[in-house]
Design a protein around this nucleic acid. Structure first.
Lengths: 204, 204, 204, 204
DNA sequence: CATGAATGAGATTTCATTCAT
DNA sequence: CATGAATGAAATCTCATTCAT
């Protein structure tokens, strides 16, 4: 193993330890010393590789964001309604399988973490592509941001057992809310064509 | 002025100073000492009256929550569509008039602050009464929580000039999203009757 | 004992402990924690009273500076030559009696410690008054600063046993160097009248 | 280029970078990593070549000390008064041309830096040779140390514009103070013959 | 010779909270 | 009620130095 590879491995070790801890405890409750200890490295190494605790946190967040993004189905061969439903189900399943991670890191509001916002916007952009809409149009962007936030809220309540619905029901609720959001986009920007999308979304 | 009145006045002074500070700075950035200094009282008084910094914060939050709640129109004489629209407009106008307060204290996600959640639930309950729906039904509760979160997101973007829509457009977008949320409630709970409400909401 | 008096007493305790430590160890080697422990108070109290370790250090330095200043004899009834000699002897005796204090805190160069410089200037001003010269004249100021530095150097060497001269010899050497410095002032500023002073200084 | 030559060149690169940094920042503010970066070499190399940060600092200091020493004129053909004046002028000119270097590295008190003290003693020894005096005699050594310190003080004030005198005036002031110092040596050690030297110094 | 990853001891300062007066 | 002195735990980040490659 080369020097560089060893270093990279150490970096990963720290990253993994940090992820583990940030999932189970809040940012403030996780101490840099804890991370170093969990990773089995010297205290200072955390800062050598990531500059600051914040920097390390950001990296963890981004890594998770990318993982979540990759869950989405974008195969154009699959009909739109099915595609979106599959994506949603995959997303929800992932969150259920990683409950703490979801509650503590993923399902946080817009604006709470700068770098994560970008990941979220990437998610919306992907959704937009699937829907055949232009994310650069303010109305589209605005309602998708609303929708994502609302979906996170429903997912959060789901994880907290705040309501009794199963995954399939949740997915259908999301589809309906998404439809409402798209109609809201047309309200703000009448030139927007959403009927066809609404049609396709309606078909499971 | 009686002993008790003086005490109450002091309490208010601290509360006002705290509110001012929590509006402009984050919770962690506001120090108990800052509040005491701003209020012109002894450091220890903050704890004398409010037990802890958290306790004081909660009081500030609740006071604001109550103010916001009181903005809502519940006059049954006003047609439903108009009533909800007026409430929304009043709410948005208030947030615009208190930008920092809105961004830093009001428009935070569910779960961020325990006591504020209750206020928010109260708001949803009020909305429910207006809509003639039963907040205790899980489907209703779930979609209203989604809706509120989504509405906050749109308001936040509005305050941050992230989109170009005016207050009237925002209100109409919200109405449309609310309609979508109600349909989503029916999806989860088919026994739910929402057609009449949807009808009334459609009429401005 | 009143509240304020207790507080002042505590402050003094910290100050005394700090002085003790700064005399025997270098600034960097003295830890804030050491001072608190030595004073028998909580760690945080140091900062409550002095703001920072630097602030505390400055106070210690100033207190010592004032003590040293008070050693000087300014009784006009005493002939000038005798007066200066007595002051020098008192100064040297003090430094010898407080060897570490002298070497570590007093005999440091101009510019090493901002607040101490002011004290030193005060000392020179006092010397000036004794000599009947105007400290505001650049030539006077410049040579007195030279002289003070040189005197500190000789004192330092004396404390370090770098030369075999006794206090009386050292005092006479200083008188001679002071005479040289005054002549140097006249070189820079020929309008300066120093002959009478030189005359008086020559008489013990 | 041979292996050894490359190594020497690298060493020089580090030395030059260190000098640059120590001139503009204080010892504590210069980090070993800064030096390595500025020199464009690996962090560890600093220690490879110089053992420690202190060691590197010492080398920088000595190099500068030697440069300053070489400024002094010792040509016996030049009359003493002229020789000393030329040396002083050269010294001052050098300090003026390297202001930060002078203030931060050269014009520091005796005892501040072990290795530099030796250089300073070398300087005094040289001066002694010029003056035809024996540096090993305590009185001579003592007053020359005083004189050097005083001269540094005047130079420091000069660099800081603390007085309005030009280089020629400063040189003459120094000559006068030097004369005073020599007389002080005779005070401490009456067997010392300084009249001839004083005579020669008086003639420019 | 050169590299830079790894070490790990360490210190200042902050601040919520308490409590004697 | 009001005061503000006193407490003391705690945590981030720094940095000289080492050493395996």
């Amino acid at each position: 193993m080369s020097r560089a590879a060893t270093a990279a491995a150490t970096r990963e070790k720290v990253l993994a330890a940090a992820r583990e801890l940030f999932i189970t405890s809040s940012y403030d409750d996780v101490k840099a010393a804890d991370i170093a200890r969990a990773a089995g490295v010297a205290h200072g190494l955390v800062f050598h590789h990531f500059g600051s605790k914040q920097g390390l946190y950001r990296e963890v967040l981004c890594a998770i964001g990318r993982e979540v993004l990759d869950l989405h189905v974008s195969d154009p061969a699959v009909p739109l309604g099915k595609r979106i439903r599959q994506s949603h189900r995959a997303h929800l399943t992932y969150l259920l399988a990683h409950r703490d991670l979801a509650l503590n890191l993923v399902l946080r509001p817009w604006g709470a973490e700068e770098p994560f916002d970008r990941v979220r916007d990437d998610g919306n952009r992907k959704l937009c592509e699937n829907l055949g809409l232009d994310f650069e149009r303010p109305a589209v962007r605005a309602v998708l941001r609303m929708y994502t936030t609302a979906a996170d809220q429903l997912a959060r309540d789901h994880l907290l057992d705040a309501h009794p619905f199963d995954v399939d029901q949740v997915v259908e609720m999301l589809m309906t809310v998404l439809a409402g959001a798209l109609r809201a986009a047309r309200v703000a920007d009448p030139s927007l064509e959403v009927d066809r999308v609404l049609d396709e979304l309606a078909r499971p």
